[in-house]
Design a protein around this nucleic acid. Sequence first.
DNA 1: GCTCTAATTATGCAAGCGTATAAATACACG
DNA 2: CGTGTATTTATACGCTTGCATAATTAGAGC
Lengths: 238, 238
Amino acid sequence: MHRLRRRPYLPDPTRLAPMTESRSTTRKSFRREGEDKRREDLIAATLECVAERGLAGATVREIALRADVTAGLIRYYFPAKDDLIGAAYRAVMNRMTVQASDALKSAADDPRDRLNAFVKANLGQPIMDPNNLSLWAGFIGMVHADPAMALAHRDGYLGFRDELEALIREALLAAGKPAEPIHTRRHAIAVNAIIDGLWLEGCLAGDIFAEGELAETGIAAIEAVLAISLNPEKGGAI
Amino acid sequence: MHRLRRRPYLPDPTRLAPMTESRSTTRKSFRREGEDKRREDLIAATLECVAERGLAGATVREIALRADVTAGLIRYYFPAKDDLIGAAYRAVMNRMTVQASDALKSAADDPRDRLNAFVKANLGQPIMDPNNLSLWAGFIGMVHADPAMALAHRDGYLGFRDELEALIREALLAAGKPAEPIHTRRHAIAVNAIIDGLWLEGCLAGDIFAEGELAETGIAAIEAVLAISLNPEKGGAI
DNA sequence: GCTCTAATTATGCAAGCGTATAAATACACG
DNA sequence: CGTGTATTTATACGCTTGCATAATTAGAGC
């Protein structure tokens, strides 16, 4: 006993025929992939879409096309499209965090060098990138309407700021300055704003600034705010 | 001679009946409005939609509903929906600019007071508002994909920054400090970033900051960057 | 008051969206 | 080398969207 086939199958003439010999009605050939690989591919495809046409351009069909799968598969891995978008957002944020942390790892020991490296990493490639901004902006625009997103943003923001506050505290101490929580909190808010503001402009209109100008401007402004030098020993380690 | 009516008219039962006596088939009563008034109303309705549900929530039907008008009328005043959205964006940006300029007008004569007032205005109500951010973010997310929008942003950014640079220059001179273009440019970039970054956070999560904390933080950071005081005479004018 | 027209409504339409689900198939395991 | 099943495709559905256009009407000008 078999069920009704709703309509005779019409192969899409725009799709390239598979390399293998073609039966009269062909079907897209495929490979089964591990769950992790597929999720990563789908997220990567999503980011490509957002990069090219903004969040609105990230439709399930377009994403599937980029990932070289059919649209239905997305729902096999993500309950709803929003879950995929959310995963993509988290992936980008996580990637930026990791990239900044990497810069810290390869920095010198002096806390001032570390803060310097952290700021430069956030204000240079690949973190300061229009693609990152597009995704970020799309989400930020939803924060006001979606409480879950507001929470996600808050957590990310406070996490970043706390990391910054720790760096600032150590840099201040290394310079022989007091580092009371009341002051480091305010410093962290200000330094975070400097980094965010410059990152924003660099992503939006990087071409109107000289190479490295934003990073240098950021370092100088932060030095002024903290009243310390972030370049304690010129030509030190390397 | 009359043309074919495509389908018998079925009045929408959800719409309230007009106050006037009802014929068997009623039609929404309306008033003709001046072109300017209608455009303003439509823009205001658009901003309401964006405020409540983000840019995606600003559909022609929803906008028309808020403006108490039918959807078709939007096309009578705006060639395409994007034109309305663009007009709404420009309206918001313009409003913020005007509000900041107003703060300048009612400020004291000393350039440092003026810069102080300008910063405080940008980091307080009604400029630092989640609704403004939602519209802004929606547009910013499109900058990468749409060259026309990129240009609009650039103009707005540079205009704001130039105004800031002039204020900074005068404040420096008033404090007896040199104000070379090479330095004021960089100062303007940094101060702009501080304002943008703090504005962003205030819009996104204003509730995690104390009243006036962001404005004070911004003033302090800017004073540090410029190495001048923005409060030259405590309790001066008022 | 009458008339004319610009403003407004009512309605339709095609395209695209996210989602649901049955059919097909790759491939791990015996 | 079969067989079972998890993965993937194909297809449809219902809804919403922006846009188009014919019918209607408010209100100004005569």
